[in-house]
Computed example of a mutant assay.
Amino acid sequence: MSFWENFWDIFWWFFLVYAFIAFLWALFAVIGDLFRDDMLSGWWKAVWILFLVFVPLLGVLVYVIARGKGMTERSMARAQENREASDAYIRSVAAPSPSDEISKATALRDSGTISADEFERIKTKALV
């Protein structure tokens, strides 16, 4: 009888693969959080890493139970920082507001860099 002929063997195999991938994801999330935590000293980080190396499943469970709330807070703070940085970048590369363009054109006209006709074209383009 072949392995692929029994439904429950296949089901069990997929379940184990899923559980292993979920465990790896949790392990990497814990390690990532461990190194992002500025409040934890280097010695405690080393103790956690040793715990995760020698007793990985128990280490992940204990870390999530003991430090899960802080893990969530650090994750949310990092997401907020990323969002703010993204918004600031978008604002910096987005087209300037019409009032900014008109004020720049006014300064150029007053300095004599552009003529009154060019100023009017820039102003019309900015308002459209």
Rank of each mutant, 00 (worst) to 15 (best):
L127I: 07
E120M: 13
A105H: 05
F14M: 08
M39L: 15
E101T: 13
L24P: 01
L40H: 00
F7C: 00
L61T: 11
A116G: 06
L52Y: 07
V60E: 06
S99I: 13
I21V: 13
E118D: 13
R36D: 08
K123T: 11
F3Y: 11
F15N: 01
K69I: 14
A95N: 02
E5F: 05
K45Q: 08
V47L: 14
R74H: 08
P56R: 06
F20K: 05
Y63C: 02
I21P: 00
D38V: 07
F20T: 08
V60H: 06
A105D: 06
P98V: 09
T72H: 13
Y89I: 02
Q80K: 15
L27M: 05
E81D: 07
P96H: 08
S75M: 13
T72I: 14
F7W: 08
A105C: 11
S2G: 14
E81N: 03
T106G: 00
D110V: 02
R109H: 05
V55H: 04
V53P: 03
E81F: 04
W8N: 10
E118F: 04
L57G: 09
Y63N: 04
I49K: 06
E84T: 04
E81V: 10
W48F: 12
F3G: 07
A77T: 12
P96D: 06
S41F: 01
M39S: 15
A26W: 03
F23Q: 02
F51S: 07
N82S: 08
D100P: 01
Q80I: 13
I114L: 04
W43R: 10
S41L: 01
P96T: 04
K125N: 15
F3E: 09
E101H: 02
K104W: 04
T124G: 05
L34F: 03
A79E: 13
L57A: 15
R109T: 03
F28C: 04
E84H: 06
V128D: 12
W25F: 11
F35P: 00
I114R: 03
F11K: 03
A46W: 11
T72D: 05
L50V: 13
P98Q: 09
W44I: 03
V62S: 13
M1K: 05
A94F: 00
G112H: 07
A85V: 00
G42Q: 08
R74Y: 07
L50F: 11
L16R: 14
M39N: 14
I122T: 07
G42V: 10
D117K: 14
G68T: 07
F20S: 09
Y18G: 05
N6Y: 10
A95R: 10
T124H: 08
